[in-house]
Design a protein around this nucleic acid. Sequence first.
DNA 1: GACCTGCTGCGGCGTG
Length: 747
Amino acid sequence: MTSLPPSGFDRLSEPVRKWIWRQGWTSLRDVQEKAIPAILAGGDVVVSARTAAGKTEAAFLPLLTRLAERQTDGFSILYVSPLKALINDQFRRLESLCETCGMLLHKWHGDVAATAKSKARKRPSGIVLITPESLEALLVRRGGEVLRLFGNLDAVVIDELHAFIGTERGMQLQSILNRIEVAAGRDRVDRIGLSATLGDMRFAAEALRPGGGTSVRLVEGIDEGNGLRLQIRGYLRPVPPDEEEEAEAKERPQVPEAVAADLFRFLRGRSNLLFAGSRTNVELYADALRGLCETAQLPNEFFPHHGNLSKAAREEVELRLREDPRPTTAVATTTLELGVDIGDVETVAQIGPGFSVASLRQRLGRSGRRAGKPAVLRIFAIERAAGRGQHPLDRLHLDLVQSIAMVECLADGWCEPPRPAGLHLSTLIHQILAVILQTGGIRPPIAWKLLCERGPFRMIDRGLFADLLRVMASAENRLVEQSPEGLLMIGEAGEKIAESHEFYPVFATEREYRIVHETRTLGTYPLDSTVAYGETIIFAGRRWQVMEVDDRARVIIVRSAKAGKPPYFSGVGGDIHDRIVETMRKVLASHDTPPYLDKIATGLLEEARAAFSGMGLASDSCIAFGNGVLVFPWAGTKKLRTLTLAFQAREFKAGHFGHAVELQDCRPDAVYELLAAMAAAPPPDGMALAMRLVQPPLAKFDGFLSRELMGLVTVSERLEVGALPLLAQKLQSPLSVDLNSSVRDRA
DNA sequence: GACCTGCTGCGGCGTG
């Protein structure tokens, strides 16, 4: 054991060191060496390193050392995880360490038996591994016990911190931790965040301790990766010969033959992940690849994995990847990006560019984990071939260009910072209800201080808080009411919501049918995507015919079938970051060919660049098209959306598609004129723009908000009104003095 | 033009 570096190891307690010996470790990992002194010193710490670098032990070895001489009533460490599956993994991982240290270890989530939880609650001690929702339930149902349970808490560990940053669940977790500190009469309890490496770790620090990020210590492990082999491959999707076949192709999409053949060639015989982009595509690709296995008379090795499949079906695929020697490719959505242990895979393939560089980075981390083996990533960019009905946007091959841009961003070491916190009024409604339930009743000024001044809802001032309470108390909502003494109490409708177990999560979920074959539930299907008796669908990697739709029980009964079309799932797209789209413009304007493109992709990039300069986009931002104009702001989704609304506010027929704004019945000179006016004027009224955005409620309690409050949420979370003048100024063509020249009319 | 995550308490019944 002399090879152990003295620094970190020597500072650990006797039982912790004993456990390390027993593991046969010859040294501590880089991130562990760095985390030990930081965590022993006390205070908040973010520990960041790539997946499987030993972050869990980096936190728990020093934390258990800290606890060695303390024996107190109540829980000592609270570990919070976004996934139940992760809690189960970590429980197995920490069991023997805790046993050696004489520390109790409790699993606490929805699948854990109620008796085990109530036992832990009655004699609280040791470490609790819990989800934010179970923690919320504990506060709401046992508000009076918080002091007894958490009064002597030594530290809170937040796993996968990056998964919480800027999200509804992240706001809820920050609020819960704050509520625990206050109810337990503690000024602050040390927080340890475990995170994948992010572009800028200051965001992680601020997410760990809102308002106090600068005092958080950052511990970053060095990347122990083995390098990367990456390729972007180009494909053409043939154009249907007429409108009728185009409609048919939309109804029954097909994987282009060349794509299917290449995927089969690269993936079969090994263990891989194929990220297909959407649940529909997952089913489509899994079905196509299964078909190729059948044709080749091989046993199937391609299995779908997405959030609407039953837990059993998903676990089967995970288990097969992790432990079965047979070759296995999981065709997945983001379900397999983080968390669950699936061992190492040889290659990662992806259909299309995806939506963020951060996610691309996570996917890469899934391969190349065996010693000496690099990560392998192949991106399949599928573009529409030239022909009937070609749109100028098709000629720019934007999927391919976006794929290239994202790889370039990744190579620069950049990835998206978490989105700046919005108002999160839906989550605040939830937290107001939760605090009332926890305390039995609270005065409005105290609630504001707790949630908004000390807690994470910093953007909500007293006035806005009062507005929100009025809306919650309104005759149509009746979520809360005020007692004669001025205490906020739960209202009639609030009671109904809070009594259900569906209350604890803060995110919205769709109502769904269960798809059942014989006695087995295959998964769930959204209520709003109608399926009819006799229809055939592809689901869970098989083809089925619908035998019965029971709308009351919300069950769809199916039997095996020969044919089927992929299922339909509705979903709203996420926002693409400015930097990606700005990089796309640079890629189109440049003449360098990236070395990681295959031959077809290289040709497609040349075509796209020729179209880019041919249409005048190198110098102009607006081009004539049909009876209208296409505007290319080369900016992210929020700016694109804001600009579109600004055009609509000026009575233009405007919509955004791809990365452009399409305007009908106008000429470029009129658009340039308007852009000049926008550039010179102060930003428009955000509320007026927000009111034009027709949208269903997005967050769980958005439906209770007034039009005005919903408008405020939209302005803060979905638009960038302040950026409009500068954006309009950038869009002014250097040639805009000569508005009537033919330059802009050649498209 | 997308994805994912989560869940108490109680009454009733069967089993050892």
